[in-house]
């Protein structure tokens, strides 16, 4: 019972850190296209009196990356239904030119306003609509959620690290005498800490396997039954074999640091 308790006291905080890392990896992967869409799918609308070229707009503001003309005929056919052909021709002649303008990177509302002003300086540009507020709020909301997630995972990591250090203290007392005796007789570090390394590496493997099992369950059982579109569409992204390697690497790194901490704080004979 004591043996299981000792291991669990180390495995559980380690698992909490690994779960946090894996949760972030999964979140990052599954929302990657959404974030990309928010960033790259954004376009502003430019209304011009005469046809304009991408080169010309770039001269006005270097952030402009793409230019796509909206078919005027299509606009006329949508807004002038039931109107005679002649009238349609007149409307088409009077209709300005509409363009979707894409940017080279995600910009804040102030930068969007600057682009608007730069473009409107040109006499051929009649109007620029940035849709700044809706674009910004959607992206900011997403960025905020991501930030909160990072904070939560970071907090969880710190708390778990404290629990691991606490458990290390227990290990330190449990193994102190043995390690000191071995040190007096000239045992090298790896031999002195051999048992600790074995226990810690074993626990790292167990924590990695348990964490992987949780996400494999989510991937193959829960996601399919969840009814959440994002989960069902991105099922493959919910857990990858490379994640297991990342988790094991992190777990091993943490336990090795933990064991070295114990070993180096165990110097000297207690008289």
């Amino acid at each position: 019972m004591k043996f299981i308790k000792n291991h669990l006291m180390f495995i559980l905080p380690l698992m909490a850190i690994l779960l946090g890392i894996e949760f972030y990896l999964v979140f990052d992967r599954t929302t990657d296209s959404y974030e990309k869409g928010l960033k790259e799918g954004y376009t502003m609308l430019v209304v011009a009196k005469k046809p304009v070229t991408l080169q010309k707009l770039r001269q006005l503001n270097p952030h402009i990356a793409t230019l796509e003309a909206i078919k005027r005929e299509q606009i006329v056919s949508e807004v002038a239904q039931g109107v005679s052909k002649q009238s349609k021709k007149e409307i088409l002649a009077a209709l300005p030119y509409f363009y979707n303008v894409g940017l080279d990177s995600y910009l804040g509302t102030a930068a969007l306003e600057k682009i608007k002003k730069d473009l409107e300086k040109d006499s051929t540009i009649k109007r620029v609509e940035t849709f700044g507020s809706s674009y910004s709020s959607a992206y900011r909301l997403f960025a905020f959620i991501k930030f909160l997630l990072k904070v939560f995972i970071g907090f969880m990591g710190v708390v778990s690290l404290f629990l691991i250090i606490k458990q290390m203290e227990i290990w330190k007392y449990a193994h102190r005498e043995r390690m000191q005796v071995m040190e007096i007789f000239g045992a090298p570090l790896m031999l002195r800490a051999g048992v600790l390394f074995k226990v810690a590496i074993f626990d790292a493997f167990i924590a990695t396997l348990l964490t992987s099992a949780v996400f494999l369950y989510v991937k193959f059982v829960w996601a399919a039954q969840s009814g959440i579109d994002l989960m069902m569409q991105k099922q493959d992204d919910l857990f990858k074999m490379t994640d297991m390697a990342i988790l094991l690497g992190v777990a091993l790194l943490l336990v090795i640091v933990a064991v070295y901490t114990v070993v180096f704080s165990n110097k000297g004979v207690q008289e």
């Binding site: 005498e177 043995r178 000191q180 005796v181 071995m182 007096i184 007789f185 000239g186 045992a187 090298p188 004979v269």
Partner: peptide, 20 residues
Amino acid sequence: LQELRTHMGIIFQDYKLINE
């Protein structure tokens, strides 16, 4: 020092055996 200690035999009043 580690190497030197391997050529020493040390005996303590409180034995310092590894109880486990």
